[in-house]
Design a protein around this nucleic acid. Structure first.
Lengths: 163, 163
DNA sequence: TCAAACTGGTTTGATATAAAACTAAGTTGA
DNA sequence: TCAACTTAGTTTTATATCAAACCAGTTTGA
């Protein structure tokens, strides 16, 4: 640490916040965006705890599930549906193709693009991830209780309006 | 031109999903975690649209606001309060110190740690960011309407239980 | 019909993040 | 008292992500 930058504040009333003490969040307390980030991060970490053991990355789940539900989908449509930039999808697909969880077939009608499908191996992996996701969602269900549909409705509206 | 109905010649009925067509999300549709990620991402992008013009990074806002509300807070407590790993806080603080938005003073009682404060310049920047945040939150308010407190309550519970 | 505009996908560059290893300082208990 | 443990902060390493630049193929309109 560069101690020279630390001012010797004789300020006797400089109170160092410590562990157990509640930290004041001020306006932050009422900002939806702030709590959205915290909740997303907590949910993501919890999901990773469930899948972390196997060779399955959390980012794969949405991609595999969407391809499963939309055989023949293109990378662009997949990018939009999964809410990730197209340039983020490229390396994910490269890995999924390399692991032979996904296959692609040329689209003669548009040579720039191609159609995506799960391989049988991919369907298996998806089944495993879906089990983790279901487990994870059960945890979330218990937390949000009967407000789940309302919560999802609100989140969906946020996406629809802001995105 | 509606290309979506174009299915490739001969081969099976591989259907290429395209633009306007709804993509089937299947189980994903009812997963809180999935919608949390989409909403967080949309909210973050919207916030960045508001701050992007100036030299203010979105990640700074929570940090500056928390220091403002808790003068003398330590990096560790800040890390916990802002929901980011301590190793993520280090470079943020380095930058804020470099820009002289934040100053730190040694804590004689524990030489490992130090106390953080906003400089007058930091208070100014925070005011600007707070204006963006308030603007952003107004957008969110309109979207969630009178369900805001309920939404925040649910998000907070997700964090409390899962984190 | 063909040049210009557009679109799907990849590459590159920048930022944000966490986890683990590490250093230095503080705490504890026999 | 001092060795073992714990904690605060930094560094290193690995991902995830987006945006912009780019390329190749497609569509448009004069």
């Amino acid at each position: 640490m560069d101690k020279t930058e630390i001012s010797k504040g004789g300020s006797a009333r400089a109170r160092v916040k410590d562990d157990g003490k509640p930290v004041l969040l001020g306006e932050l307390e009422n900002y939806v965006g702030f709590h959205l980030r915290l909740a997303q991060s907590a949910s993501f970490k919890a999901f990773r705890r469930l899948t972390g053991e196997s060779d399955l990355r959390p980012g794969w789940f949405a991609v595999l599930a969407i391809i499963h539900n939309n055989p023949g989908i293109t990378p662009m449509a997949l990018s939009r549906a999964s809410g990730r930039d197209k340039s983020t999808i490229t390396p994910v697909l490269r890995e999924l193709l390399r692991e032979e969880l996904v296959r692609r077939s040329a689209n003669p009608a548009d040579k720039r693009s191609y159609a995506l499908f799960l391989t049988p191996h991919g369907e298996e992996k998806l089944a495993h991830l879906a089990a983790c996701a279901a487990e994870h969602d059960r945890e979330l269900d218990e937390i949000v209780g009967d407000k789940k549909q309302e919560l999802i409705r609100l989140l969906r509206r946020i996406v629809a309006v802001l995105d």
